[in-house]
Design a protein around this nucleic acid. Structure first.
Lengths: 347, 347
DNA sequence: CTGAAAGCGCTAACAG
DNA sequence: CTGTTAGCGCTTTCAG
């Protein structure tokens, strides 16, 4: 029996049961110092004998260390921040899942933030990351934030994903967007399409890079370029494509620079009563689950979504181990999945 | 100028710049006590004069409070845990987004955990929630955990979503699953289908409830019941449905008890070269983005996904304010979205 | 290997 | 309204 300072007699192992035990209580029950408890439960050097006793006491009390206290004292949060535009974008959903898996595997926790392609929210969440004293951040920034990003403003390393800022500013894991867009365009050309329109997101470097690849591929063949930029969301794509289709000389093929825009394009085509690829061929980015299911399937560039998160996390961990390393940019390749939406053009 | 205990002279406002400032540094620069800083930055009573000075000093130093310290001292984490089976299930993606929105609005943070319908992971993450000293948890448990759940084992309240345990054990926000399944079946019957198969998840109470509704609706009409239970993932659904379709007297209509199973059913039907609804009609749960895009659209029960998260968070906050309130279960209704996949049966 | 003691950075009494 | 003081629960020197 113990009498704590409130003078309440309590049998730690029974009456208090499983809740609210602190290291001190464990120490008392195991008849050791709190330092020994800390070491026994952590990785300190403790004799097997005492370790046993401590573990038993801890189990008996249902002791759970207070992570805030631990983090404060040890000065390390074992936490990473993950800032994405919107978790509902399947690309980010998949990435975030793999980041979480990798993080928990490394004994870290992740704080997920939806920044909605909004510079203000980005700044706010970045501030929050400071307050959390995260050890690092995995970040998919808007074009604006990416281009002005000052890593020296933060005391944690940043790994950018999907989008990268100026070279050498932060680590990054990105797709070879130019190449991927070129592949898509080349494929459409091979299939007989000539008036190929491109729909791109207007807020990220990714959209811009894919547009560049699109243009390059068309110009190399002397074909006309028709790129349009919209907010990266379904509704914006729907109205843009609808308007486009209403024009007299509209494209006979369309590429969409991400899964959301692709979805919008499909919807617009359906609502306009046009067939794919009969009236307009369609291809895009992101092998989202549904793309294989609509019509004869949609031709897409598949990104290694799960790997992107895993690699970003690895990059972050290696940066943490070796802060002075030169900044690295890892460029991945997408793979072209050919499906019915880009069947050879019928004349 | 200040000389800190390390004897290093430093001009706080310039040389140290924006990093690593602590409350003590702000106090020194503003020439007030640390308590005043704390109050000025929090909501304590401080004269406008000093408040101004403190804020300026804080801004100059780029001071950011250390949340671990704050949480330790104030004994409140302002954090909620969110345990879902897999964030990649669009239902949980949407719910989690709304939980996060609501949480940040309430000045709270959320820790997201993917438990993969795995009892071990559930236990592990629940333990982690204890260590984080979260103020509450929003939880979508496996049937197993739900039925044995002992809220007294945890020092935080739990709100279950999508699935509920025994009545009165925890708060919960759920769909009226029986009713929704009945609506689906009734609709199919009205459209002329008679051999209606049901595909349900085998690990949650939700699947069971929907199966019950399905059975009730069929039995009320004296129609045959054919329910099959599978792991709640796409691949399991694909093979189950494929096998089913290969049987001589297979159903002429199918309902799938969630978005993942529905997706699997579509894929199986496509791969078997069967048309929807010509060969087999199809309906299911969850108005995932793609369901409007395949074929003539898929008939589904739409759940108020965003609301579910918002309401769960509200319920949690109200529970926090009033712990002694009786346990509440909020039952929401889905809405039937009729689309081409359940067009009237052609004979 | 073990214990005593000193804080991590902050908030909340308690005095003035 | 403001400053002083005492910890929150834990890890980590520093002695023994």
């Amino acid at each position: 029996m113990e009498a704590d300072k409130r003078g309440v007699q309590r049998d730690l192992s029974k009456e208090w049961g499983l809740m609210g035990a602190k290291i001190k209580d464990v120490a008392a029950l195991a008849r050791v110092s709190i330092a020994t408890v800390s070491r026994a439960l952590g990785n300190g050097p403790v004799s097997a004998d005492l370790k046993e006793r401590v573990e038993q006491a801890a189990a008996q009390l249902g002791y759970r260390p207070n992570l805030s206290a631990r983090r404060l004292r040890s000065q390390q949060s074992r936490t990473v921040g993950l800032l994405v535009s919107d978790i509902r974008n399947p690309f980010f959903t998949a990435v975030s899942r793999s980041v979480e898996d990798a993080a928990y595997r490394a004994g870290m926790r992740v704080i997920l933030c939806n920044v909605d392609e909004d510079v203000k929210k980005e700044a706010m969440y970045l501030r929050l990351m400071q307050e959390e004293r995260v050890c690092g951040v995995i970040f998919s920034p808007t074009g604006d934030t990416a281009s002005h990003f000052r890593p020296d403003r933060f005391e944690f390393p940043v790994v950018m994903i999907d989008r990268a800022g100026p070279p050498g500013v932060t680590d990054a894991v990105v797709l070879d967007n130019m190449l991927a867009a070129q592949q898509l365009v080349t494929h459409l050309i091979e299939r007989g399409y000539r008036r190929i329109g491109g729909l791109f997101g207007n807020s990220s470097t990714t959209g811009a890079e894919r547009a560049a690849g699109y243009e390059a591929a068309l110009m190399a063949q002397g074909l006309p370029v028709a790129a349009r930029f919209v907010s990266p969301n379904v509704d914006a794509a729907v109205s843009a494509v609808k308007a486009w289709l209403a024009e007299p000389d509209h494209p006979d093929a369309l590429i969409a620079s991400n899964g959301l825009l692709l979805q919008g394009a499909v919807r617009a085509l359906m609502e306009a009563g046009m067939s794919i690829p009969g009236d307009v061929a369609l291809a895009g980015f992101d092998n989202d689950a549904w793309t294989g299911l609509v019509g004869q399937g949609l031709t897409v560039i598949e990104q290694p979504v799960y790997d992107i998160g895993t690699l970003a996390m690895e990059m972050l961990l290696s940066r943490l181990e070796n802060p002075s390393l030169a900044k690295r940019k890892m460029v991945l390749n997408g793979v072209l999945l050919t499906r019915g939406s880009t069947a050879t053009k019928q004349v």
